[in-house]
Simulated assay, not measured.
Amino acid sequence: MIENYLGFPDGTSGADLADRARQQAVKFGAELVMMSEGVKAHFDNDHIHVRLADGESLTAKSNICATGVEYRRLGVADEARYLGRGLFYGAGAAEAPYCSNEHVFVVGAGNSAGQAVMHFANYASRVTMLVRGSQLSATLSQYLVERIEARDNVDVIYDTEVSALHGASAHQSPVLQGLTLCNRKDGSEHRQSASRLFVCIGGEPNTDWAMDTSIVRDASNYLVTGPDLLTHGQPPAGWPLKRQPFYLETSVPGSFAAGDVRHGSIKRVASAVGEGAMAVSFVHRYLQEHH
């Protein structure tokens, strides 16, 4: 549920907002290539060439990368084994109604985790929020902190992470039955019964497509853009233009990034939409330069 986007005082779901955006884009003549993942790209002769998962390819003078992030994993043994069988990534809105009268665990301390906790609290008998840090206020919006603290059926356990998953087979399929929780201060562990675990700990950027290109990525593989590319006021080596990179431009002229995939981005819907609109403006400026 998105509650802080201007113009939606009662909130809106991400799926509904995305579908409205799709309808609006089609209305203005955009061509959508659905269900075709871009798996590889290279730059040649001032063009980007993208190979799609279905074998097709796209070529363009300019591009905007807004591929976002994938959910970050816990990194414990048997994680894939329990996926969809008690372990879920993200807020799990579709799963919430099935959690009636259950004890639900949510891992994470960001806004997505806080929103998930409040959503599950409307269905589950108890919701436990597992937080690696020692406080929520450093990573969570204050309105969510206040809501979480006010709910009688919500607990927050600090300085804690999941170190193991436990379960048993049901009809030849593994089912989550418990967690091992580790105290990050003293290393002590204890086992906790659990059948629903939702992981909301951020994501990894979808930038593998750029792995063999000259695009600069940071240590976490986010695309570096604009002023962040400069060192002592100078663009990176290989930058071919006299001007400096535009604000959302990568180290390859004419290739832009917007939203969560970009280094240093503000993880909010409003800023992502704004960056998308700004990137389109920069594309026009770039194309005018190279007309």
Rank of each mutant, 00 (worst) to 15 (best):
56 E>N: 13
59 T>F: 02
65 C>A: 10
84 G>P: 08
89 Y>C: 02
53 A>M: 13
88 F>I: 07
59 T>M: 11
69 V>E: 06
94 A>Q: 15
96 A>P: 03
77 A>L: 05
66 A>V: 10
70 E>T: 09
58 L>E: 09
63 N>R: 12
92 G>E: 08
94 A>F: 15
54 D>Y: 12
70 E>Q: 12
91 A>N: 07
80 A>C: 01
56 E>I: 09
86 G>W: 04
91 A>K: 13
62 S>F: 06
54 D>N: 14
90 G>F: 05
70 E>K: 09
76 V>H: 09
55 G>W: 06
86 G>L: 01
69 V>F: 10
75 G>H: 14
63 N>Y: 14
81 R>C: 14
86 G>Y: 00
60 A>S: 15
66 A>P: 08
75 G>N: 07
55 G>Y: 03
76 V>C: 03
84 G>C: 05
71 Y>Q: 00
81 R>H: 05
53 A>S: 15
67 T>C: 04
68 G>N: 01
81 R>I: 15
93 A>E: 15
69 V>P: 04
86 G>F: 08
60 A>T: 11
75 G>P: 00
69 V>D: 01
60 A>H: 10
88 F>C: 06
80 A>Y: 01
79 E>W: 06
75 G>A: 08
57 S>Q: 10
64 I>C: 09
55 G>R: 06
58 L>W: 05
72 R>Q: 09
72 R>P: 05
74 L>T: 00
83 L>D: 02
69 V>M: 14
73 R>E: 11
93 A>I: 14
66 A>W: 00
92 G>C: 10
82 Y>T: 00
83 L>P: 03
71 Y>K: 07
57 S>C: 12
53 A>K: 14
95 E>M: 12
74 L>Y: 02
73 R>F: 11
78 D>M: 07
69 V>I: 15
76 V>G: 09
71 Y>E: 07
79 E>Y: 10
70 E>F: 15
64 I>E: 06
65 C>V: 13
88 F>Q: 08
62 S>R: 05
79 E>Q: 02
94 A>G: 11
84 G>M: 01
96 A>S: 14
54 D>G: 09
60 A>F: 12
82 Y>H: 03
88 F>D: 01
91 A>R: 10
56 E>Y: 12
59 T>I: 08
55 G>M: 09
77 A>K: 05
71 Y>H: 11
